[in-house]
Simulated scan of single mutants.
Amino acid sequence: MNYTFHQLKVFMAVVEKKSITKASIELNMTQPAVSIQLKNLQDQFDIPLTEVIGRQLYVTEFGHELYHIAEKILQEVAAINYKTQSFKGMLSGRLKISVASTGKYVMPYYLKDFLKVNQGIDLLMDVTNKTKVVESLANNEVDFALVSVLPEKLDIEQEILLPNKLVLTASKNYEFDKNGLLNKAVFDELPLIYREEGSGTRTVMQEYFQQAHIVPKVRFELTSSEAVKQAVMAGLGFSIQSILSLKNELKEGEIQIIRVEGLPLIENWRLIWLKQKKLSIVAREFLKYIQLHKDNIFSENFAWTAHF
């Protein structure tokens, strides 16, 4: 047997993504390079690890067994590296964070300097919708989650980072009275673009409409904040979006904000963790860093949001 750690890592990515194409993106490799590494690993075994039926890749039972073994092997190798670094006096280990999709415009700024100082830390950050973020936290798969809507059934601790201001957006070509405040009745006519079920932004939008006794005209749903933003810019409809995701588009005049009664909606971005979880040394140090520096991070990177 001459398989390598790199081959195991590539194989794990293929299993997790169920796709060579998606694994290549995850690993920043070309598709042929991933295929070669997968073949080289497969050549070590007489039993198939994967199979392709139609155009879909499936992992065999043996492949799943190897995945779990490989996971343990790579965790032990990582532990050796972390232990070596700790003996050198370096903070080392793995930090796992699950981030609600619009939080991708937030979390990097709270990680940047911490990771710069502590280069022995490996970051695993999953960006997904609110439902999956809460699931990963509930299953104790991550150290922290970044959300704007608190989960109802989990016993958690939280650290508020910054306001999440949600505004009604339109393409640059939409004409309206920019000096006035529109009545909520405007939603009777505007075709709205919604995020998918499970999105925190969608939850807040629906609560707003319910409280205002509005039945909005939903034109269609999209599965990412970027897709919604592009659709609004293209003039396909209107949407309530986080101001944090719009910095460049507002600066370039590609999107405009419509002032409406009851808007903006303001939630908070919160770093949350399970109350009973025993945080690792890395997680505890990150939390201390956040508590000490969060105000400065906001002032340096997000103070511009106060102007809208």
Rank of each mutant, 00 (worst) to 15 (best):
A100F: 03
V14I: 12
V133Y: 01
P216Y: 09
D143M: 08
I69C: 09
T305M: 03
P108H: 02
E141H: 12
Q42V: 06
A231L: 02
F302M: 02
N248T: 14
P264Y: 01
L38Y: 07
S224E: 04
Q85F: 12
R270K: 15
G253S: 05
R202Y: 09
Q256I: 04
A33L: 08
S92Q: 05
E175S: 13
L182R: 13
G93K: 06
A170L: 06
A303R: 02
N81K: 15
K288V: 11
S245K: 01
P191Q: 09
L57W: 12
Q44R: 07
A100Y: 06
A283T: 07
F220K: 08
D113I: 00
S299K: 08
L146G: 06
A212C: 08
Q230L: 06
E157A: 07
E135V: 02
R219Y: 02
E157R: 10
L91M: 05
G200Q: 07
D113S: 05
D113P: 00
D143V: 06
L222H: 00
L292E: 14
L250Y: 04
P48Q: 03
K277I: 03
K116M: 03
Q56E: 15
E141K: 14
V215E: 14
I255K: 01
G253F: 02
E65I: 12
N28H: 13
G235Q: 04
K178H: 11
Q206G: 00
G198Q: 08
A13R: 06
Q119G: 10
N2R: 08
V14D: 03
N2K: 09
N129F: 11
E261H: 11
Q56Y: 14
I80A: 09
E285S: 15
M29W: 08
I272Q: 02
A170P: 04
R195P: 05
R55W: 03
G262N: 07
N268K: 13
Q206T: 10
V99Y: 03
V215L: 11
A185Y: 14
K112M: 04
V204A: 15
